[in-house]
């Protein structure tokens, strides 16, 4: 599967800001997305959209070409519509199940971003939403690969979107997901405390089986959901053996490390399987942590492959290694 177009909305004005001194910091312990003016969305429609729908649609529309429309829309979003759900819930409680307005309910369905995109772009093709928390975007990628295997002449819009909604933030705070202390994203990897810094954003891609003029190729993907570090290591080892027979091939490892001491052992275990000179990058200080942050991770990978430039603050290890541009 080849990636042809990319676009994102993130907490940074320039998603890959070169100078760490210029990166946006959390406000009230949250890394909030810098939203554009959404000139592609009619103002009347925009007003009625919740934030994740707005970000999703606003990221997708610049990529959708009327002359060469995509054949389907594949979205990963763990919590799309959740904020609207709770708004509708508040109506139910406040008005004691009385006469309620259905707007929040209609926007509360998890498939609302893909549905809106189908509607706005008049796309009658494949349309699906994967909602499996931290693997929502990965399942969307797997889906796109399978759709393209079946229909090699097609192209698809592929994306990952999640927002920090007030209610989801509250529930995740109760779950102990976030850092208790007030901390700058510039120091997140040195925090040595449990919890992450919540972030949000949207990243979208146009993918096809056509390698001409592609930005990048997704060669292989594998997912695993477990709390066993050894199992992760074992599966990654098998994955590398299968897909990276020439072990020198990997120049960059983009780690999802997020400053949470509870998940650090998983990322460290992965690093032990790489060549000692493989460059290791981190990006969560830019976008914060959210279920589909891997989508923006893929955006960073594409951007780096395209520009062959990496801002210094992304390096964790082996900054000096000569890079060949094969990721």
């Amino acid at each position: 599967m080849y990636i042809h177009k990319i676009y994102c909305i993130s907490p940074q004005q320039d998603p890959l800001q070169a100078d760490i001194e210029c990166i946006n910091e959390p406000v009230d312990k949250k890394l909030l997305a810098v939203e554009p003016s959404y000139e592609h969305i009619p103002p009347g429609v925009l007003r009625r959209m919740g934030k994740s729908i707005r970000m999703g649609v606003g990221t997708a529309l610049p990529l959708l070409d009327k002359i060469n429309p995509v054949d389907g829309i594949i979205i990963g979003s763990a919590n799309a519509g959740l904020d609207e759900c709770v708004k509708f819930l508040i109506q139910i409680v406040d008005y004691d199940e009385g006469q309620l307005t259905p707007g929040n309910f209609v926007q509360s369905t998890g498939n609302v971003i893909a549905g809106q995109l189908g509607l706005i772009s008049k796309n009658k093709g494949y349309n699906i939403t994967h909602m499996h928390q931290g693997l929502a975007f990965e399942n969307a990628v797997i889906d796109a690969i399978m759709q393209l295997n079946t229909n090699p002449a097609h192209s698809y819009l592929l994306g990952g979107v999640d927002e920090i909604s007030p209610f989801h933030y509250n529930i995740e705070t109760l779950n102990g997901a976030y850092k208790k202390e007030d901390i700058s994203n510039k120091e997140i990897y040195q925090s040595n405390t449990p919890g992450c810094l919540p972030g949000e954003g949207a990243a979208m891609f146009v993918v096809s089986a056509d390698k001409d003029a592609a930005i990048a190729k997704i060669k292989a993907i594998q997912t695993i959901h477990t709390d066993d570090v050894e199992l992760v290591k074992q599966q990654l080892q098998l994955f590398l053996e299968k897909n990276n027979q020439d072990s020198d091939e990997i120049d960059l490892f983009i780690s999802g490390e997020n400053g949470d001491t509870r998940t650090l052992p998983f990322y460290e275990a992965c690093e032990t399987l790489l060549n000692t000179d493989t460059t290791v990058l981190r990006f969560k200080h830019l976008c914060g942590e959210y279920a589909t942050a891997s989508a923006i991770g893929l955006w960073y990978a594409c951007q780096i492959l395209q520009t062959q430039e990496i801002p210094p603050h992304l390096f964790k290890k082996n900054q000096q290694k000569k890079r060949t541009g094969i990721f």
Binding site: T109, G110, N111, A114, G115, N127, I128, T129, H130, M131, H132, Q133, L135, A136, N139, I142, T223, I224, H225, T226, L231
Partner: peptide
Amino acid sequence: QGVINTINTA
């Protein structure tokens, strides 16, 4: 331990 997914198309 295999691929796990949750789909929502209403």
